[in-house]
Design a protein around this nucleic acid. Structure first.
Lengths: 218, 218
DNA sequence: TAGATTGTTAATCGATTAACAATC
DNA sequence: TAGATTGTTAATCGATTAACAATC
């Protein structure tokens, strides 16, 4: 019961973003050597504030161990459970260019419950091939396949000009959430969830910080 | 003078992230048909708050036109200037897999002043080839080339296990900012700027939101 | 016990949104 | 002028950090 409540407790978006980062770091440690880890250590390794680490971890797990720290094994298990639990989501991806292939081949997603089961494209030289063992089908098969298999997530890696059109098809397919890599703002009905992955935004930050830094140094 | 001051005025990170989104949207409009655009219209199209749009735009440009709105052409020019001005940054990329290729081929970066001039890899079947007209060189040439050309930005798209090692080479090369796509936390000296592009974080958000939505509907 | 660490309450900081005067 | 829109000041909201009691 208490366990279940935790799941529905709303966790802040910022915390949620950091959880995979903790998990990834903890998994990189040698579990033979390190049995226990403390928030100051985690904070230092990831360049975060130690209170923030404790607060984040407190949001997903019950009971810490004052004086000693956290049991590494247990902490990993808790994060794994939280991030993976109930998230067995099947996804499809439209647009099998370089980026589409990179995502289809990426191994890390299933750790978070995402399983990209098939790709779609319009290019006849690509359709019928396989990428990392996953079939590439013609785009006009998408609606029927997604409906039949009750797919919830669609990933868009097509060029800008085709993104809205593909998005419409996905909505017609009954898809509920869209992970959009095309740099366009998609028009969707209110009940559809869109997450834009915006490279230009990231670059703008990096580039301005760098510029400020260089100008400071002169 | 006033223009120059604007550039050094610190803009919030959140605003900075949205600027490329505005620019992209505005550029997608037909400049023949639309001469003037207002903040409520922009806000609606991008699902943002109209006050936020005004505040963001006020941060980079001087003078708006009450009653009418913004001159589209002028607004685009201002955003272009702000985001591109003084940002002629040359970058190199290490790791020419699918993701590396996607980035090397991406046309949108030069609009923001980023120019990826060359790629590096250790795979002999890749070294010596070209991707979108850009040469792929052996990784052990990186340090000397970057030093010689005073490259400021390095992009890491190698597998996790090699990321830290490549990162060290980049630091040795005199690179100041690193755009890291490998899901590891890089250890860098304080003066090096790292921007992590974390797919798992994005996915965690999407996936939790979706789960909440589905559970609400039941 | 003394000391290190957790977890939480309170204070601070930053970003968003509301309210409104200024403007054309 | 009346009305729509800008730009800014003030209020709100949310996230980070500091302070500290509880704990082993």
């Amino acid at each position: 019961m208490a366990e279940n409540e935790k799941i529905y407790t709303s966790i802040s978006v910022q915390t949620l973003k950091r959880l995979p980062i903790y998990l990834n770091y903890l998994k990189s440690l040698d579990r033979e050597k390190t049995k226990i880890i403390s928030s100051p250590v985690i904070a230092k390794a990831l360049a975060l504030n130690e209170v923030q680490v404790r607060k984040d971890l407190a949001a997903i797990k019950s009971g810490g161990r004052p004086r000693t720290g956290y049991l590494l094994e247990k902490l990993i298990a808790d994060l794994d459970t939280y991030l993976g639990y109930g998230n067995v989501n099947e996804a499809v991806i439209a647009g099998i260019g370089h980026l589409g292939r990179a995502l289809l081949s990426y191994k890390g997603f299933d750790a978070y419950g995402l399983n990209i089961i098939v790709g779609f494209d319009t290019d006849e030289t690509v359709v019928g091939t396989e990428v990392s063992g996953k079939k590439v089908l013609p785009l006009d098969k998408m609606v029927s396949l997604c409906k039949r298999m009750h797919i919830n997530i669609g990933i868009i890696t097509v060029p800008c000009e085709q993104a809205q059109q593909v998005c419409n098809l996905m909505i017609e397919s009954g898809i509920l959430a869209i992970w959009n890599f095309a740099p366009v703002n998609l028009n969707v009905p209110e009940h559809i969830l869109v997450h834009n992955e915006d490279m230009a935004s990231s670059l703008a930050i990096l580039s301005k910080h760098l510029k400020k830094k260089i100008s400071r140094e002169n």
